Computed example of a mutant assay.
Amino acid sequence: MKKINLKPILTICLAVLLSSCGNKQENQQAPQRPPATFPVAQIKPKTITGYQEYPTNIEGIINSNVRAKVSGYIQKVFVDEGQKVKKGQTLFKLETQSLSQDADAAKARINVAQVEVNKLIPLVEKNIISPVQLETAKANLVQAKANYSSIVANIDYATVKSPVDGYVGSINFRQGSLISPNDATPLTTVSDIKQVYAFFSMNEANYLDFLQSAKGASLKEKIANFPEVSLILANGNTYAEKGKIQTSSGQINQNTGTVSFRAVFNNPNQLLTNGNSGKIKVPTIYKDAIVIPQEATYEEQGHVMVFKIGENNMVTTSLIKIKASIDNLYVVESGVKEGDKIVTTGVGKLKSDMPITPQEVPFDSIIKPIEKLFRN
């Protein structure tokens, strides 16, 4: 029977056993890694201003339609569109040849009536005719003078003048056009644009926010106490002058579901004119509000959530209710309060009841607005 040499086998088994024991000892001696580090900030109340934007159209505070008071052909146009004019300045001249002929005829009738009166006066004084005849002649003279005055007035009306100081709008009729007082379209419009009106509308929800945030017992007081508004021009620039809301209809339009407003802006350089468009920026001030950066939140099944720091540095989820979104911040209505600590960044790596190593950061540093690199 052949003898088996067990020495090599025993040597291998012993080596495996010693290696296993060594690895186990190393594993027992290896220190545990600390939880991952995340920036954490303690919530403090802040006063913040948000803005709602509303489309607007601009009009001068005075828009006076210029119309003819008599019919006739335009003989001459003295102004051009966009020209600045004074009250009483001549804008149009109508042809008056036929009116002048009528005036000559009316003046002749005055002379005839005057001759008749002069002839009857001595006859009445001598009791040759009845005084009634003289009175009738005098009445005819008065009537002739009235007709003449009416024609002269129409000749004056043929010179169409500006009713106000302002700027000439579109000229709708040119030389040679036949015009009438009954024309639906005016000759032109003269607008006073030293100040301009900006008309805009709020939906029902925003109107209620406006009423609740403005100070005052009545709508008039709330409008008087409301902060100034800004105007964004069509080119995206902010108009230099601030505006003030003057009036509101205070009634919800059943067709549009909106409430109309009117703001007024000074226009010293006549940059604005009739027909300009833009956007009104209406401020809403949230005083001592709870605000958090949007970066500190995440969405789950349509809800906005944050991670709060609990005992033993364990994070727990909290559902928050949003009152407003301003730049990169949320104004929070409920879900977190002053003094709570939240994870500010990296929330996508967290799970509820997960321990972390908090790294305290100043609250003000996380709520600074993010500067836009590009403009729309």
Rank of each mutant, 00 (worst) to 15 (best):
I171F: 07
S177L: 09
S191K: 01
T185K: 13
N172C: 04
R174P: 00
D183K: 11
K194D: 15
R174Q: 14
Q175E: 15
G176L: 12
A184C: 00
S191P: 02
T188L: 09
Y167L: 05
I193L: 09
T189K: 04
A184P: 00
S191M: 00
I193A: 08
G169D: 07
N172P: 05
G176P: 10
D183I: 05
S170Q: 15
N172T: 07
S180Y: 06
Q175S: 09
S177I: 08
I171R: 02
V190G: 09
P181S: 07
V190K: 07
N172W: 02
S170E: 15
Q195W: 01
R174V: 04
S170H: 12
I171V: 11
I171C: 04
P186F: 06
P186A: 06
G176E: 13
S191G: 02
P186Q: 08
D183S: 13
L178E: 12
S180P: 10
G169P: 06
P186M: 06
N182F: 07
F173N: 12
I179S: 11
K194P: 00
T185V: 14
L178V: 10
L187F: 02
L187D: 03
S180H: 10
T189V: 14
N182I: 06
G169C: 05
A184Y: 03
L187I: 05
K194F: 03
T189N: 08
N182D: 12
Q195S: 10
D183E: 09
I179P: 10
T185G: 05
G176A: 13
G169T: 06
T189R: 01
G169R: 04
V196L: 10
N182A: 14
D183G: 05
N172I: 04
K194C: 03
D192A: 08
V168N: 04
I171Y: 02
Q175F: 02
Y197R: 12
I193N: 12
D192L: 08
T188Y: 03
L187P: 01
V168D: 02
P181I: 04
T188H: 03
S170T: 15
D183Y: 10
V168K: 05
Y197L: 11
R174F: 04
L187R: 03
V196K: 09
S177M: 11
I193W: 00
N182Y: 12
T188F: 01
I179A: 13
L178F: 14
T185D: 01
R174E: 11
K194T: 15
D183T: 09
S170L: 14
G176N: 14
S191Y: 01
A184S: 12
V196A: 07
F173K: 14
L178G: 13
G176F: 13
Q195K: 15
V168I: 14
A184F: 04
T189Q: 03
F173A: 12
Y197K: 14
L178H: 11
K194H: 13
S170N: 13
T185A: 08
G176R: 14
F173V: 07
F173E: 05
N182Q: 15
Y197C: 02
V196H: 08
P186Y: 01
P181H: 07
I171M: 01
I179G: 11
G169N: 04
V190I: 14
I171K: 04
G169L: 02
V190F: 02
S180G: 10
I193T: 13
S177H: 11
N172F: 12
D192Y: 08
F173T: 05
Y167H: 10
T185L: 13
S170C: 00
S177V: 08
S180V: 05
N182H: 08
S170M: 13
S177Q: 07
K194W: 01
